Amino acid sequence: MNKKWLQIMKQVIPITIGAALYAFGLQCFVIPNQLMEGGVTGIAVLFNYIFQLPMSITTLVINIPLFLVGWKILGSKKMVFTIYGSLALSAFLALFESYDRLSSIISFEQGYDSMLIVLYAGVTLGTGLGIVFRFGGTTGGIDIVARILSRWKGYSMGQIILIADTIIIGISVFYISLDKILYTLVMVFIASKMIDFMQNGGYIAKAFSIITDQGEQIAEKITAEMDRGVTIMPAKGAYSGTTKKVVYCVVQRSETHRLKQLVRSIDPGAFIVIHEVQEVLGEGFKEDED
């Protein structure tokens, strides 16, 4: 298998897994318990409740015009995996719909602890969508809009989907009971957090701002022993007027303790500020996918 096909498979396989998880959550947690969803999928769920239309067909039909918009704005490269993700979702929905005993085997139909069902549903749906997003795909619908706004405006995809889902779920109050709506909102909130975690959680890093008199020595040791890039900036104490150096470095979360020990071994009196970083692009971290 050549390098190009290997790279494609590195995206296709996770997107397939994510779409399967999402379809599984819909069929095993959402539908059997008369919960709702947001976006195009939510519309499909609502049509399933009212008209008994299969979600696999409804989601695909509604997504077609959005595919055209996404193709123009996001480009053909991005939309290839979006279309694949949507087709994979419809395929898995059709598979789970054809096996109507699935939800009873999983044993999460009505009558079980509602909050437990909501928790599992939110985690499953959010994890599935988060995997799809992280590897460059979407499942269509609001996901396409979320990717566009996330790319252009820098908004969190989870937040965009949460707002859109809340609006669509609000409309469904005329068709399903209020308690189901309230449970659904909790599920959607959990799913949105899982989406953001799956998107950024693997890239959470720590940024160190080290104020010290031994800037060069610390920077040299970080470079030699930890193979991390370091930036040294001049600084001056506002009260004391003392000239110092600020050493700035970003490391993986697992390297935090090691870096603190390294700094203390050179300058025990160094002032260290540690920041949580949600995403890092560059050598040694995540490569830019855009």
Rank of each mutant, 00 (worst) to 15 (best):
K72L: 13
M9E: 02
V69Q: 04
I57M: 10
E225S: 11
S156E: 08
L21G: 03
V188W: 02
N48E: 03
M1N: 10
M1T: 09
I57Y: 12
V118S: 08
I163F: 15
T124F: 00
G136M: 03
G282K: 08
E287M: 09
T82S: 15
S86K: 06
C249W: 01
Q261P: 07
R264K: 12
K72E: 04
Y112W: 11
F285M: 09
F51E: 08
R258C: 05
S98T: 07
K221N: 03
Q110V: 14
I171Q: 00
D100L: 06
T212Y: 05
G154L: 02
G269T: 13
K286S: 12
I181C: 02
S104C: 01
G241S: 12
D288C: 07
S114G: 00
M194C: 15
I232N: 03
I8P: 05
Q199W: 01
Y112L: 10
I211M: 10
I17M: 14
F51Y: 14
F24T: 02
L53E: 00
L162K: 00
I13T: 10
Y248H: 12
V280A: 07
I232M: 07
V280R: 02
Y99E: 11
T139C: 08
A235W: 04
V246K: 05
V230D: 04
V251E: 09
V40Y: 02
F108C: 05
G75I: 00
E287Y: 03
A23E: 08
L178I: 11
Y183P: 00
A224C: 04
I210Y: 02
I142A: 14
L185I: 10
M79R: 10
G284C: 01
I266W: 08
K153T: 01
I8T: 11
E216G: 09
N2E: 07
T243D: 15
V186S: 05
I50K: 13
I17N: 08
I274N: 07
I142F: 12
I160S: 07
F24W: 06
K206A: 12
D100C: 02
A270I: 05
G170Q: 07
G126M: 06
S76G: 13
K206E: 05
F133A: 01
I161C: 00
L26N: 04
D113R: 04
F96E: 04
P32R: 00
D267F: 10
M194Y: 07
K221D: 06
I8N: 13
P14S: 10
R151M: 13
I62S: 03
S103A: 14
P14C: 08
I171W: 06
G38P: 01
V132H: 05
Y84C: 01
D227H: 11
I218R: 03
Y22V: 03
V173M: 13
Q52A: 14
H275T: 12
N48D: 13
T223Q: 14
D143L: 10
G70A: 11
V69C: 09
M36A: 15
G282V: 06
C249M: 02
K77M: 03
I144L: 09
E220Q: 14
